[in-house]
Amino acid sequence: MKRVRLDPRTKLYMILVVSSIVMMSATTPLLWAVRLAVTAIPLALLVVEKRYASALRFSVLYAVALLLSFRFLSEESTGVFQSLLTGYCGIVVQFMPAFITAWYVVRTTKIGEFMSAMQRMRVPDGIAISLAVVMRFFPTIKEEYAAISDAMRMRGISLGGGSAVKMVEYRMIPLLFSCVNIGDELSAAAITRGLGGKGKRTSVEILRLQVFDWLLIAAFTAAAGFFVVFKYVL
């Protein structure tokens, strides 16, 4: 199958629409259907990108949470277990669609594409560069954190002697150390490649909205319009 390459601008639009729809609460089965459809698209795109494991994981998580919150939780639920369950389902049902979309975008957008798209949309450099760094930095933080936890476990101080302050301190300080160093390396690398120079930057990635992009944009616009009309007008 020919690989579908989406334009980063389409992806950003997708994020925009999905998070707006997630923000408005779905009240009728019809609205839930729209919400599910909107969630299904990034999942399908994950499959197209051959990210089967994450697609499956997300689908299962989301399905279980939906099922639980519809079957077992209601206005009358009380008790500790119930409220923990509510918490879990609440997070997942509420944020999963936006999370899946964001995950898809972060995992499949090359930094060059992203920067080039930002430039085309005339986003100021400051915001574009910082946002690109944020996007790329989450996986780094996760890696560093795992390394720190490993080191702590090896020395048997993973609970920080039972003190909450120590637990935070033991983790955060080493993490900050490595992040600051990585940041310095990152800026050195970026500046050698001409970031922040005076000239207009060119890009190897030539961005063009293709048929598939337009189709998706149309689909998402329709979904958002549908949602708003049925929620607020009818």
Partner: peptide, 24 residues
């Protein structure tokens, strides 16, 4: 370049600390 102007290095610093702050 103007010393008051933000450079690429500053933007990267902002990005990193925003990411950390957000994780926290």
């Amino acid at each position: 370049m103007n010393a008051k102007q933000l450079t690429a290095k500053d933007f990267i610093t902002i990005g990193i600390f925003t990411a950390i702050w957000f994780v926290v």
